[in-house]
Design a protein around this nucleic acid. Structure first.
Length: 978
DNA sequence: CAGTGAGCGAGCTTCCGCTTGACTT
């Protein structure tokens, strides 16, 4: 009997399809993509590790040739597929019918290397008919579509892996940038900026309770009041105000009532007669919403059930795996005919024929960039199980979500809701003389139709139906009523609301950004990177998000345009259609294309980054514009240790839970006046100075004196708690250092240092084993400690090697445990073990290989270089080869010698850390910020003093010196190929 | 962003889209 292997993407799908296909077919899944570009160094095959482009996984100088690897966690599964492929007579690749699915099919083909016929088949519904039809109409892999996917993949990699490092250098390490997340972050930031600029305004109007002759009451609102000239004038409402100034928009032509005017008018209108001047009734109909797709399911999951996107998706995944619903990651609102039939049957049964829409409804409005590989999300099968029937079977989240999906699906085949809206205008006169006009509106639902099953945004359709009705008595033109009660109401304009998970997903989807499979993880990413935090339902962007967004907007504007993805999709469509190709497309994006006149066409990412690295002023980027603080001299900055505020010499941390929008001038002054986290414990009687407990970047500490800088500081001991620290304890800590006694004519002092407690006698020091010894060590004990060799007691002895590998004619290689994990060393070079290199199973040969391949010389210590250089030269030559260094360029005189460099001599002539000259460093000034560059150029090229240059750059001398030092470090690092 | 003293191994961080378990607490 023949055996056909069918491969789909999802295991749950495989199980279903296998049932429909029967004998002769084996159905297995790929479980998503099987190969990808290497994620990090650990995934890069040895063979490619030395390549400059390996980090990207794309050979950017060679047609962007991708390097695909099977990730470690997929290896076993791919091996299983290979085995199955070998025993099959035929293979059908039935991955999804979209760009990614086509690519998965192609990767399967590449990786399995089948020797039997291979066909490609697609279906959009998991129904018996659809699958049999698909089997009967196979095709070949669409290589153009695959190429479009590869272009998409490459672009995302280049964007993410080239731009993120810019953020590491200019903002903070471990940050990230990407086509999707950076736009999502920008959306949050722009909304917050609007809120920060927002100026609120107050306005008043009047709510009138009218009473008819028939003794029915209804609400109406005053819309117009006559001015001094007797003419009616519209009352101001929220929309008439400019959100940037809080003042009425120019030319609004409305009247703004003060509270007093509103109250006077209310009194004057109470009890007065009103005349109905017009009554207009209009019928309306409302159509049901389309069935769920991923984004709308997440939105309604959030609105109706209060689920976060991940929670909705987790429940949906379980429903899908249990066969209760169709696939939950989809962008298509399409329903199979099976589903439409099932829904209609159920409507007729449960609500009656009247509630059925006369014609089957088709929902085809496409979302931007929809790929439509699946159906809409609906109850599975050709007859839907009702939520009630599943009460015992499903529980908790799953049942509630199923109920929601069922209702929405059934409702989409129901009849329109029908009703009437009534709009009434009334006129009256206050006793104070003003004419007024009022308006009342009502809404009556005559036939609820689909609303009986499903009301968007509400958990209970029955209750929501009532909410949707605002009954109004049947008022006729000319009818007289009485203003029974008049209530003046004050209102305040509101800033635009922050995004929630649901509304952000909605906006991203609207712009065609992100895919159903990624919406939930986008939210995770921006929170994991610290770009946003949830505050209730709202997503609040962090100060880091402001800095990052500002950098990208100013220096890589095109990359964070809201339509960047839309444009990319257009280009990818061209590639998929065979009218454009991957390589030239990527070349324009990454390298740019020179056209006549020397101009560069395309995004030209790489050259842009190289240029911007020098342009971007890190300090400027870290300084965040806060409109409300303008002119106050207060600056907000994100520093290495989080966000802080600065005014002159005063600095204070910004509390983590303070949203950018909440930083008003008042709040800022308040924080500056009371440096954050500081707690005054009391007063030191001896000096009369306050004792303050603070949290600093090196941990908690106490100070004597509340000023900056304080008179004295002392770190807390490991067991101390900043929140409960007593004044007595603080004073005891501040009493350090302690004079232990005098020995050998020198004083012995006990200090608490950054590496822990230690004793100091003249120029000599010894560590102590615990902090309490600082108070307890006596002179004799101290002297005994000093008798010990420096690295003996009081400091962890050098750890014994974990393993030793011996070699003939070569120094042994030791495996040691270090701060950064296990590493190999032979005394000359060191190499840290990477992921996948097991310390237990390491062979001597492999150890040698690793050391040869990537062993690095430890940093030369001053005074040690001599003896280092005198040792074996083989290691040096190897290192020099692995990381070619710039030879000191004061060497032009030795040009002849340099022409034919004999590796060993060259290596010996260039010790590991010869001081680099300005000529060596100058080409690398691109790594510096504009300010750093000016400073360095002035001092090193023009030979000026930092003190003289600082004022010109608007820096104080102390800061400038620090900056010069930093800049020098950066330059050296860059010049040495770091 | 405070201030302290010596000596030891740097290398990695990061993207977007497809999919599920396998881990531990």
């Amino acid at each position: 009997m023949s055996n056909t292997l069918v491969i789909v993407e999802s295991p749950a799908k495989a199980r279903t399809i296998e049932k429909y296909l029967g004998k002769g077919y084996t159905v297995e899944s790929s479980i998503g993509h099987i190969r990808d570009l290497p994620k990090s160094a650990a995934d890069i095959p040895e063979k490619y590790k030395g390549q400059a482009w390996a980090r990207l996984g794309l050979d950017v100088e060679n047609d962007f040739q991708p390097l695909y690897v099977v990730s470690p966690e997929k290896r076993a599964h791919v091996a299983k597929l290979k085995k199955m492929a070998q025993s099959a007579d035929e293979i059908i690749l039935a991955t999804d019918d979209d760009r990614e699915g086509e690519s998965i099919a192609w990767h399967l083909y590449q990786e399995l290397k089948p020797k039997v016929p291979v066909r490609r088949m697609v279906f959009h519904e998991i129904t018996k008919e659809a699958i049999q039809a698909a089997i009967a109409a196979p095709r070949q892999i669409d290589t153009n579509l695959v190429e479009a996917q590869e272009a998409r993949r490459a672009l995302d990699r280049l964007y993410g892996y080239e731009v993120s490092p810019v953020l590491w250098k200019k903002v903070a390490p471990k940050l990230s940038a990407g086509r999707v997340q950076s736009v999502a972050t920008r959306m949050l930031v722009e909304r917050e900026r609007e809120r920060m600029r927002f100026v609120s305004a107050q306005w008043w109007d009047l709510l009138v309770t009218g009473r008819t002759g028939g003794d029915v009451t209804f609400p109406a609102r005053v819309t117009d009041v006559s001015g001094p000239d007797g003419k009616l004038q519209k009352l101001a409402a929220g929309r008439d105000f400019d959100p940037l100034t809080g003042r009425l928009k120019e030319g609004a032509g409305v009247r703004l009532l003060t509270e007093a005017e509103a109250r006077a008018l209310a009194t004057g209108l109470t009890g007065q007669p009103l005349t109905v001047t017009s009554a207009e009734e209009k019928p309306f109909t409302q159509r049901p919403y389309p069935p769920f797709i991923t984004s709308t399911l997440q939105q309604e999951g959030s609105r109706k059930l209060g689920f976060a996107a991940t929670r909705t998706m987790r429940a949906a995944q379980r429903l899908y795996e249990g066969g209760y619903i169709t696939y939950m990651r989809t962008d298509s609102t399409n329903l199979s005919s099976e589903a439409v039939g099932a829904a209609r049957t159920q409507v007729a049964q449960m609500y009656g024929q009247d509630y059925l829409s006369p014609q089957p409804r088709v929902y085809s409005k496409k979302a931007k960039n929809a790929q439509e590989a699946h159906e809409a999300i609906r109850p599975a099968g050709s007859s839907f199980r009702t939520p009630d029937a599943l009460r015992g079977e499903l529980s908790g989240d799953e049942w509630r979500l199923y109920d929601l999906i069922w209702k929405r699906t059934v409702a989409c085949q129901m009849a329109d809701a029908r009703g009437r809206s009534l709009r009434v205008r009334l006129a009256g006169k206050a006793t104070t003389g003003e004419d007024v006009q009022l308006s009342a509106s009502g809404r009556t639902i005559d036939f609820p139709g689909f609303l009986r099953a499903y009301v968007e945004g509400s958990d209970d359709p029955a209750a929501a139906l009532e909410d949707r009705e605002t009954p109004l008595p049947p008022l006729k033109e000319g009818e007289r009523v009485r203003a029974e009660a008049v209530k003046p109401e004050g209102h305040e304009t509101q800033p635009p609301a922050r995004y929630t998970e649901a509304s952000l997903v909605q906006s991203l989807e609207g712009a065609g950004i992100g895919r159903p499979s990624t919406y939930a993880s986008i939210l995770g990413t921006i929170q994991d990177r610290g770009y946003a935090a949830k505050k209730g339902q709202a997503l609040v962007p962090s100060w880091t998000a402001f800095a990052t967004s500002a950098l990208l907007e100013h220096h890589f504007g095109r990359l964070v345009d809201y339509d960047f993805t839309a444009k990319m999709e257009e280009d990818l469509d061209e590639i998929a259609g065979g009218r454009e190709h991957r390589v030239p497309y990527l070349r324009r994006f990454y390298l740019g294309e020179s056209v006549q006149g020397g101009a560069v066409e395309g995004m030209a990412l790489k050259p842009t980054i190289e240029r911007q690295m020098g342009e971007i002023d890190a300090r400027g980027i870290a300084t965040i514009r806060v409109p409300r603080l303008e002119g106050s001299g207060i600056e907000v900055r994100v520093g290495r240790y989080g966000p802080y505020m600065e005014r002159g010499e005063t600095k204070t941390n910004l509390p983590a839970d303070l949203a950018p929008d909440d930083l008003t001038l008042e709040a800022a002054e308040d924080l500056l006046a009371r440096p954050s986290g500081d707690r005054t414990l009391g007063t030191d009687e001896a000096t009369g100075q306050p004792v303050v407990a603070r949290a600093g970047r090196y941990g908690p500490y106490v100070t004597l004196g509340a000023e900056n800088p304080p008179i004295r500081t002392a770190s807390l001991f490991p067991g101390d708690d900043l929140n409960t620290l007593s004044l007595e304890r603080a004073l005891r800590l501040l009493s350090l250092p302690r004079l232990v006694g005098t020995s050998e004519g020198e004083e012995i002092w006990a200090f608490n240092g950054k590496y822990g407690p230690y004793l100091k006698r003249g120029g000599d020091s010894r560590s102590l084993t615990n902090h309490d010894q600082l108070f307890t060590v006596g002179l004799h004990e101290a002297e005994a400690i000093f008798m010990q060799p420096r690295f003996g007691r009081g400091r962890a002895a050098p750890a014994a090697p974990l393993r030793t590998f011996e070699f003939d004619g070569r120094a042994p290689i030791l495996l040691k445990s270090g701060r950064f994990g296990p590493y190999l060393t032979d005394g000359e070079r060191n190499a840290t073990l990477r992921k996948g290199e097991e310390e237990s199973s390491l062979s001597a040969e492999r150890a040698l290989e690793i050391l040869e391949e990537r062993g690095k010389e430890p940093k030369a210590k001053p005074g040690k270089s001599k003896s280092g250089a005198a040792k074996t030269s083989t290691a040096k030559a190897g290192a020099a080869k692995a990381t070619p260094r710039k030879t000191a360029s004061k060497a032009p005189a030795k040009a002849t010698a340099a022409k034919k460099p004999a590796p060993k001599t060259a290596a010996r002539a260039t010790p590991a850390k010869v001081a680099l000259t300005w000529a060596d460093l100058k080409p690398h000034v691109g790594v510096l910020s504009a300010q750093e560059r000016q400073l360095v150029t002035a001092t090193r090229e023009q030979g000026r003093k930092v003190e003289d240059v600082a004022p010109e750059l608007g820096l104080d001398v102390k800061k400038a010196k620090g900056m010069a030092l930093q800049a020098s470090k950066k330059l050296n690092q860059a010049a040495r190929g770091g």
